[in-house]
């Protein structure tokens, strides 16, 4: 599994309220949620994002509310992977459970800049910044996590096992 796209870059402590504000939580439709993704931190994001793009942020990404609507909105907006120094723990579980790939890699998260072209190999965990010509070693996705992502989430994965 591989991902390649343009980077959208954010800082520390990006909370789930700015990823998808509560005023939109009266919907649980991924397409509806994606229309307002990142609205309170980056109103231009939805206009800029293209299918396959990559989100990069610093510490504690996805902190705050447990709303699964946050990784759902990011995934439905077209983002193929989120790289961060660290993730808040509920967001981490939610992202895996809905099949949004995420990688913790502090060095990559600090050095990669907005607009860079980045390629990720999920089998090896290798992150390549094509624009800068640099590469980083993130954690490889264990096979079961790749299976969850391929199955589009935990429930389908559990069903496929039974």
């Amino acid at each position: 599994m591989k991902a390649k796209g343009t980077v959208h870059k954010y800082g520390d402590n990006v909370d789930t309220d700015v990823i998808i504000p509560a005023r939109y939580l009266n919907s649980s439709d991924p397409i509806e949620l994606a229309k307002n993704c990142m609205e309170d931190i980056d109103p231009e994001f939805v206009k800029r994002v293209k299918d396959g793009d990559i989100m990069v942020a610093n510490k504690n990404f996805g902190c705050g509310s447990s709303r699964e609507h946050a990784p759902i909105a990011i995934k439905a907006s077209g983002i193929s992977c989120v790289i961060a120094e660290t993730f808040a723990r509920i967001f981490y579980r939610n992202a895996i459970n809905i099949g949004l790939p995420i990688i913790e890699c502090p060095e990559a998260a600090r050095e990669i800049e907005a607009g860079d072209e980045v390629e990720i190999d999920f089998d090896s965990g290798k992150i390549t910044d094509v624009t800068k010509g640099t590469s980083y070693q993130g954690q490889a996705f264990p096979p079961f996590m790749q299976e969850i992502i391929k199955s589009e989430g935990l429930i389908n994965y559990i069903n496929s096992k039974n």
């Binding site: 705050g64 509310s65 447990s66 709303r67 699964e68 990784p71 509920i90 579980r93 939610n94 459970n97 809905i98 989430g153 935990l154 429930i155």
Partner: peptide
């Protein structure tokens, strides 16, 4: 996310998402 409140009673409780 505020499910952790019940730790006040000496329980293990934690917030998760909808799939969990």
């Amino acid at each position: 996310s505020h499910t952790c409140t019940y730790g006040a009673l000496g329980a293990f409780s934690t917030g998760v998402g909808s799939t969990d």
